[in-house]
Design a protein around this nucleic acid. Structure first.
Lengths: 187, 187
DNA sequence: AATAAAAGTGAACAAAGTGTTTGTTAATGA
DNA sequence: TCATTAACAAACACTTTGTTCACTTTTATT
């Protein structure tokens, strides 16, 4: 890809992210974005069809890496491997978030965080589905597998939201322990 | 309240709801709303400051009733009363949703459902917080109560979303049983 | 029934944003 | 070096916004 394209693309992403920290997605205009990114109107529309299109591209960029790492992890160690495994996929995910590449936390804590959270959950749901092994414990007899998968991915993103809203006071390891404690009884 | 005010208010709510079924919140314009509701531009702004204001009012109208019912229920029976109590607050909530007053389901399943779901979760979170009794089972030793509350409200709304997306094939009673099965081990 | 208060109306408005076109300049990579 | 590609600024027709104005209709009170 052309160096110039790369540059404008990141300029737009960066501008968009910093705007999201200030106002809601709905209030951000293309005008805002091109002013902040300092690119021409024509240039913006050469890269993205609409503002929604930009949002989607940003989500892919943001979660693509983090989710593919988690996928690798669960392929080698399994989704929940051993009870006290330090290699928990969930712990890895939380650690990745804490590293805050590309200011992913900024977007998960901004006014429009639900948009990103929803995308995150969908990706996570797919990941879990691909690696789910039903252990058929007593508690989950005859509960549909799809329900359980949704429960896990749903609880996880809600926990992440809770974590971020509370200024991420807990370590990823501790949070992982909490999560496994509420999830393990049903696996 | 004046009969005329009541009429326009519901006209606007109805128009807004039906528009939400067709397009996303962000794409709906005030113009759309006043055209559909068949009220003057001035009238709209006499009732609501902005589109966001209208959204908030609609949420309050929608969830106000359903949440206060649930609050009554949990005051008398407790939040999770007995293991197999038919009077589960959660079951009541699901039944209420199924009744679909004011087309609440339409809004929880539309393109912009996250907005309503988030409001729903916040209300539910408060409700649970006000009625939570920590039973201190083995599994939740030293897990912060706030974490547990968030886990319960979060899982519930994610389950509702899953339910609706899957065309609500399960009965409220069955869904309630699933939910209690995944939540009870940690109470 | 008369009347004041309140609610709704339609028209007009300036301001801002949208998405596109056009001609031009400048950076890129082969 | 040179053709290609990207970015640019300016202008555009158009839509949406939020507000003001003078006006009509409905409502509740006396």
């Amino acid at each position: 890809m052309d160096r110039r394209q790369q540059k404008t693309r990141t300029a737009i992403f960066t501008a968009f992210s910093s705007l999201l920290a200030k106002k809601s997605y709905g209030r951000i205009t293309v005008q805002d974005i091109i002013d902040t990114a300092n690119v021409g109107r024509t240039t913006f529309y050469a890269h993205f069809e609409t503002k929604d299109d930009l949002l989607k591209a940003l989500c892919e960029e943001l979660f693509g890496h983090i989710i593919s790492c988690a996928a690798d992890c669960s392929h080698t160690h399994g989704l929940y491997s051993d009870n006290n495994a330090p290699e928990s996929v969930f712990c890895h995910l939380l650690q990745h978030l804490q590293e805050n590449d590309n200011n992913i936390l900024g977007l998960l804590s901004c006014e429009s965080s639900e948009i990103f959270l929803r995308y995150f959950k969908d990706s996570l749901n797919e990941l879990i589905r691909n690696n789910f092994v039903n252990q058929n414990r007593r508690t989950n007899q005859d509960i549909p597998q799809d329900f359980l998968i949704n429960h896990i991915s749903g609880s996880f993103v809600e926990m992440v939201l809770w974590w971020i809203k509370g200024s991420m006071k807990q370590s990823p390891e501790k949070l992982d322990r909490y999560f496994r404690a509420v999830i393990e009884p049903i696996l």
